[in-house]
Each structure stands twice: as structure tokens, then as C-alpha cells.
Write a protein that binds this DNA or RNA. Structure first.
Length: 418
DNA sequence: GCGTTTGGCGTCATCACAAG
DNA sequence: CTTGTGATGACGCCAAACGC
């Protein structure tokens, strides 16, 4: 079997595979049996070697012999070329002695040398220093790509043109396979980039969604806090009204109060069932703070003390609620509001009137609760009477509007008379 | 069932006015 | 001038209708 050697001719840097028989004084026993730092004497064409063998007299003809370096050995020529194409083989530094012997003046030294390849013999740069070379190639490719784009021709065409020209050394050293491989990876990376951008867009949208949810959550939290606060105050009122056992009891209930709603229920029942006496109801005034002739109803709502006292003696839930509403909001505000802000569907041009503050409404409810609770302990009755608060206020608003309309009517009638 | 609106009725306060 | 009476308006309350 013939073995093949991948050789590099020193004179022109051209590389290709040749039968080992072309190498003078060389009969390797294995694929590793060669000195990659040695300069061999090689026939450039196999035919030359054959011819030489046939006519030994011509042996030593310097014209046919060339100095070359052996880079690899293999049993099959195709294998050898393929493996050289796929792998990257370092061009070993030639030993100084051999070079001197060969009389070859060279400056290869430490540097990796880019091989020049014939079209027939594509090769690869050696593995060491590949990065640097690849970078250079990529830079050139990009340059070519840019050129080709501007010329509205494909990169491949640009490559062909420049490689056919062959005048430019730089162009000549870009192997087509390498170019295509790089092009492929470039396209692949572009694809990946698109994927990443899509992913980014998706993530961005998700982020926006999350932000919205967070906002809603924040609103819910604040509403919950408000409800909790109201509940707490309700608890306080209940405890005061039910007449508080020891203060410790009250504190304990407060401390345990995580879910205020059931807590109230529990406290109420406990007190109602276990108390052997019903303490005198705490006067309403004890709860409401007096200051500068004003009464604090809670949450920063103050009403005139005199009016408050008058309110306390009014008869009936309806009047009480309506008067209190007027004290808190005033008729001017009330006439332009609705209780909940829901527009009527009776009219076509239903313009929803702004709602009354739920907070103030709850204050009204609380005041009425205090009042009712002095009359009865029946929970269902209290609940029933309290449920009418909105209705009363709505009525009040309507009554105010009625009187306003009447006034206008009278005014217009007066003008008509005049 | 609830909120809103319309409309009606009753009550109360106020006013005008006649009668004493 | 005082008093009784009717008219009037403001207000409170209620019912019904409507849409959700």
C-alpha cells in the first residue's frame, strides 16, 4: 500500500498530498514516522518520481527536486486531504540546521504562516494562532459582504469575483469552505439575534403586564388597609359600647386581631353571652372629640358642635342621616353628587355624577350606628336600619335638586310676570 | 336587591288676610 | 292689635318605574 504525505513546498508555500514515493530517501513505517521540522527533497509530481525510478540516471536532477516540509501522513490520499481540510495543522518551525543545510533563507520563525493554496488543494491554517487568523478572515469577509451588499450582488458572487482575480493576496487566502462556513455561522447568529430580539419583546410585554398587575394590587392593598382601619374602629366602638371588661381584655382582642371581621363577631358574642350585666351605654360624646367648637367624627372630619348637638335630638333615622349628610358635605356639594356615582339609565344623556366619598359615607354610617346602638342591641334591626343610609342620602340629594328646580321655576315665573 | 329618578302625599312653618 | 284660617313652600317620606 502506498502512503501519502501532505507536504508544503518551501519555495512557494503550496501544499498538497503526494505519494511518499515522491519524497527522496523516505520510507515511513507509520503515519507518525516523519520529522515535521526537517526539510525533505520531494518530486513535485508523482510522474516525475516514476520517471526517475525508471531512469535512475536522472536522479538528483535539481530541476525536478524541490525542498518541502512534511505536515502529515496517511494511507489514503482523500483521507489525508480531508483531514487536513478539517483539522487545523500547525506549521512547525523548521529546525535551523535543516534550513541552513538546505541553504534556504527563511524568516518563518515564530510566526504562523498563511498557506497559499491552489484551487485543487484547499488547506487550513494551523490550529495555533487560529483565532487571530480567523478574525482577520472574518474582517475581510465582512468587508466583502459590505461591498457585495452595496453592489446588490450576493456575498458569494463578491467572493468569486475577488478570488478569481487572484491578484490580491488577501483574497486568495480565503478558502471557499471556510468562507461558506463562516457565512453559515454568520447567518445562524443573525437568526439567533432575531430570536433573542423576539424574546426581548415578549419579556418587555410581560413586564408591562406585571407592572399593571402590581398597580392593581397596590390599589387593593390600600383599600384593604382602609377597610381594616374602619373595622378596627368599629371594634373599638363595639367594645366601648358593650362596656368593656377589663382593659386587658380589650388589649388582648386588639392584639389578636388579624382578621378584624370575625374578631368583631367573636367579641360581640362573647360579651353578649357571658356578661352578667350590661353596663350603661357610653355616651356618644365620649367617643367624639371636642375641639374649638367642633366635633371630630373621625378621619379628619369635623362638624360644628352646635349643629351636632341639634342633630343628636332629631327624631328618626331618615332625618338624622339627611341632616348629618348636609353637615358633612353641604347642600351645594350634595346636589351635584350621587351616592355611589352610578349614572341613571332612565335618561339617555345620563351623565354620571361623582360619587360621595365612601370614607365619609362610612363615617355617616358609623354615626348612625352609634345612635341606633343606644336604642337597641338587636343586630338584625341595626343592620336593617343601617342599610337605609344610602337611600336616605339619595333622597336628600333628590330633595335638594327638587327644591333647586322649584326655585328656578319660581325665578323664571317672577321674570315672566315682570 | 340596589341605586337612581320621578312623582305624589303628608307635615310643618310661614305668610297674608280677614274677623273679632 | 290679636287671633283664626287658608294658601304656599319646604321638607320628609313613600311608591313605582327602570336598568343593572
Amino acid at each position: 500500500r502506498t502512503m501519502y504525505a501532505f507536504v508544503r513546498f518551501l519555495e512557494d508555500n503550496v501544499c498538497y498530498a503526494l505519494p511518499v514515493s515522491c519524497v527522496q530517501d523516505f520510507s515511513p513505517t507509520s503515519q507518525l514516522d516523519f520529522d515535521n521540522q526537517k526539510v525533505y527533497t520531494v518530486y513535485r509530481n508523482p510522474e516525475e518520481a516514476e520517471e526517475d525510478e525508471e531512469s535512475p540516471g536522472q536522479w538528483g536532477d535539481r530541476l525536478l527536486l524541490h525542498k518541502a516540509q512534511i505536515l502529515a501522513l496517511a494511507e489514503d490520499k482523500t483521507d489525508l486531504e480531508n483531514s487536513v481540510m478539517q483539522k487545523k495543522i500547525k506549521i512547525p518551525k523548521l529546525s535551523l540546521n535543516h534550513v541552513e543545510e538546505a541553504g534556504e533563507v527563511t524568516d518563518y520563525g515564530e510566526e504562523d504562516v498563511e498557506l497559499r493554496h491552489s484551487k485543487r488543494h484547499d488547506g487550513r491554517k494551523q490550529s495555533e494562532g487560529t483565532h487571530k487568523s480567523i478574525e482577520a478572515v472574518v474582517a475581510r469577509l465582512e468587508k466583502q459582504n459590505g461591498m457585495s451588499l452595496s453592489n446588490t450582488s450576493s456575498p458569494e458572487e463578491a467572493f468569486m469575483e475577488s478570488s478569481e482575480g487572484m491578484n490580491n493576496m488577501d483574497d486568495a487566502v480565503v478558502p471557499r469552505i471556510l468562507y461558506e462556513e463562516l457565512l453559515r455561522s454568520y447567518q445562524q447568529q443573525q437568526e439567533e439575534m432575531r430570536h433573542i430580539q423576539q424574546e426581548l419583546e415578549r419579556t418587555r410585554r410581560q413586564l408591562v403586564q406585571q407592572a399593571k398587575k402590581l398597580k392593581e394590587y397596590g390599589a387593593l392593598v390600600s383599600e384593604m388597609k382602609e377597610l381594616r382601619d374602619l373595622n378596627r374602629r368599629l371594634q373599638d366602638v363595639l367594645l366601648l359600647r358593650l362596656g368593656s371588661g377589663p382593659a386587658i381584655e380589650l388589649e388582648k382582642v386588639k392584639a389578636e386581631s388579624i382578621e378584624p371581621e370575625p374578631e368583631v363577631q367573636k367579641t360581640f358574642n362573647e360579651e353578649a353571652n357571658t356578661s352578667t350585666y350590661y353596663p350603661a351605654p357610653v355616651p356618644v360624646m365620649d367617643k367624639y372629640i371636642l375641639e374649638n367648637g367642633k366635633v371630630h367624627l373621625g378621619s379628619g372630619i369635623w362638624v360644628d358642635e352646635e349643629k351636632w348637638h341639634q342633630l343628636q335630638v332629631t327624631q328618626g333615622d331618615s332625618k338624622y342621616t339627611k341632616n348629618l349628610a348636609v353637615m358633612i358635605w353641604g347642600t351645594d356639594v350634595l346636589k351635584n353628587r350621587s351616592v355611589t356615582g352610578v349614572a341613571t339609565k332612565k335618561k339617555k344623556d345620563a351623565v354620571p355624577k361623582p360619587p360621595l366619598s365612601p370614607h365619609k359615607l362610612s363615617i355617616v354610617r358609623e354615626c348612625l350606628y352609634d345612635r341606633i346602638a343606644q336604642e337597641t342591641v338587636d343586630e338584625t334591626e341595626i343592620a336593617q336600619r343601617l342599610s337605609k343610609v344610602n337611600k336616605y342620602i339619595c333622597e336628600k340629594i333628590m330633595d335638594i335638586n327638587k327644591s333647586c328646580k322649584n326655585e328656578e321655576r319660581r325665578e323664571s315665573a317672577k321674570y315672566n310676570l315682570q
